[in-house]
């Protein structure tokens, strides 16, 4: 085994699919929970939506999922912008790697 050099980089350790999915869904789930608690503590949803006949349970639930959605969008964009620039050159690295010598 040769020591890693600039011309032959060691591939980064593989990240399983489940870990990728979880990395987006899970932190946003937690922050959505916190956001909902803070939201529910500071505002009484009944007075915020006085003119509508929503139950508090419905408002809490919907706000939780909206917060979750926001978190998912946030996490996905972070992952998107963290993608190495080379990937956007039509996945050249992978083609090169797959081509025979």
């Amino acid at each position: 085994m040769t020591p890693p050099s600039a011309s032959s980089p060691t591939p980064p350790p593989a990240i399983p699919l489940i870990q990728r999915v979880v990395a987006i869904l899970w932190p946003s789930f937690i922050t959505a929970g916190i956001a909902t608690i803070v939201f529910a503590t500071v505002f009484d949803p009944k007075t915020l939506f006085m003119e509508y006949d929503f139950s508090r349970m419905a408002i809490y639930s919907v706000s939780f999922f909206l917060f979750w959605l926001m978190g998912v969008i946030n996490a996905m964009s972070t992952c998107f912008f963290l993608m190495p620039c080379s990937i956007f050159n039509k996945c050249k690295t992978r083609q090169d790697a797959a081509a025979p010598e």
Binding site: S8, P9, T10, P11, A14, I15, P16, L17, A97, A98
Partner: peptide
């Protein structure tokens, strides 16, 4: 040769 065919396939597999 380092980062070469076999390795690429291996990554692809272990990813999913």
């Amino acid at each position: 040769a380092g980062f070469k065919p076999g390795v690429a396939v291996e990554i692809e597999q272990s990813l999913y």
